[in-house]
Simulated assay, not measured.
Amino acid sequence: MLVLSFVVAAIVILLGLLSGLLMFWRLPVPSAEDDVTCTNHSTFISIIIPARNEEHRIVPLLQSLSQQEGISFETIVIDDDSEDRTSEVASSYHARVIRNTPPEDGWIGKSAACWTGAQAAKGKFLLFLDADTAFEKPDSLLRYVNSYEQMDGKGILSLQPYHQIEQVYENASMIFNIIVMAGMNVFTPLGERLTSAGSFGPSILCNRADYDISGGHAGIRGAVMDDLALGEAFQSQDLPVRCYGGRGLIRFRMYPEGFKQLLEGWTKNFGTASKSTHPFVMMLVNLWITGGFVSPVLLALTGMFGSPFWITFAVVLYLLNVIEMAWLARRTGNFSWWIFSIYPLLLVFFTVVFVYSLYLTHVRKTVSWRGRDVHV
């Protein structure tokens, strides 16, 4: 009976490892520098940055924008009712600052800020950037726009920035980052045969005409996950939505203000975001998580009751989980190498936060973010 339990556990772990490979099989990125043909430098870009209490986090982005070469753009910072020096900092980098008023009933703050920025924008293309992002190189914006134009300049090209880790506690975001990308549906071997769950919120590039056709942020004014909702709005108009990795082109540092902010941020996101993941991808994610949990349990049980064969086999399976976790995580951010060996603790943390997020979303119907209560 004990051996049968070991066999079942091993099968679950192997299925989990296979699911991890399949859910994140491919990760397209914009064209490399040598592959980009700079055929159109005349397109004017409006970069719209919604910012609420971002006086420290927005500086790397503004610095990186000041270094961009080869393309014309304007920078519009929407000060979303900040209580700090966000406006002054943005102005010091020659950004155009628009002070947004508190959102009206039915609006979520970020969507209202993005809409305000879009109405003031002069560019043919609109690039919505989160304040905690930053471009990696002086030609990053040019590469981004050229990649979009190579895709016929239609719909959305959204990049998930590479997560820059600086403090130990930030490694707690590892599982979330993996699942955010896998949950977009488009990184399996099926590719774009599965419809994208939406777009990545930190970086969304589109053209003005398509934005207007989709209804823009006004059409999704009440959505907590505006990025997913905006992508769905584009898709409802038969406009393509492409999601790529941004490594080497754009980065971000999530929740640098401490663990409490990290917890609040992920709690806000996940209860709603999970609704958009395709059932096939959700199955893969669940199998991956289950296998990840079962592996340390099998290791412990074989250590107490197993034969040398089963102990060795359980160790090998655990090491395979560690290796796969490192492979997946390092595609999304520069997570510390030592964290992979204790990945079960991060799975526990993810599960607790996810359950709490479901409670806030479906029972309390309210989440908190940056001093605001958001009804969902």
Rank of each mutant, 00 (worst) to 15 (best):
D80H: 09
T101N: 13
L141V: 11
W107S: 03
T43G: 10
G70A: 09
S147F: 03
H94W: 04
G109Q: 13
S140G: 08
A120D: 11
E33H: 13
P50G: 10
I71Q: 11
L127D: 12
P50H: 09
L127A: 00
P102W: 05
S111L: 01
S66F: 04
G117M: 04
S31Q: 15
W115K: 08
D105W: 06
D34T: 13
S82A: 05
N53M: 08
A120G: 03
A118R: 00
N40E: 13
P50I: 08
V36R: 09
A113F: 01
L61V: 05
D35E: 15
E74I: 02
R96D: 06
T75K: 09
I98H: 12
E33P: 01
N100Q: 15
G109R: 15
A113Y: 02
S147T: 12
G106Y: 01
K122A: 14
Y93S: 06
F128V: 05
E88V: 01
N40H: 11
A118N: 02
N40R: 14
Y144D: 03
S64A: 07
R96Y: 04
T39G: 06
Q119W: 00
L126P: 00
D132G: 03
L61M: 09
A118P: 03
A95V: 06
S66Q: 14
Q67V: 07
Y144P: 06
N53W: 03
V59D: 03
H41K: 15
S87C: 10
I78A: 06
N53Y: 01
S92I: 03
G109L: 10
G70M: 00
I48Q: 07
P103C: 10
D80K: 02
V97Y: 02
I48C: 05
E69H: 02
I47F: 04
R52S: 12
F135V: 02
R57H: 12
T43Q: 14
F125T: 14
Q63F: 00
Y93T: 00
F128S: 02
D80M: 01
T116N: 12
C38W: 14
S87E: 13
S140D: 01
A90H: 06
S140N: 05
E55Q: 15
S87D: 12
P103S: 11
D80E: 11
T116D: 10
L65R: 02
W115N: 12
D130Y: 07
L129D: 11
I108V: 15
D130G: 04
E33F: 12
E88M: 10
S66K: 13
H56G: 03
V89K: 05
R99Y: 05
S46E: 01
K137T: 15
P60Y: 01
F73L: 05
P102G: 05
Q67A: 14
L142Y: 08
I71A: 07
D139M: 06
S42V: 04
D79E: 00
D132L: 08
I45T: 10
D139H: 11
D80V: 02
F44Q: 00
N100D: 14
A113N: 06
E136N: 13
D35M: 12
F125N: 15
T75A: 12
E74K: 03
Y144H: 11
N53E: 11
F135Q: 04
G106E: 05
I78P: 09
T86L: 09
A131G: 07
S87F: 04
S87Y: 00
D34M: 10
N100E: 13
E74F: 08
P50E: 11
F44E: 08
N40F: 00
T116C: 13
D105Q: 14
S111I: 07
K122V: 07
C114L: 12
H41R: 15
W115F: 13
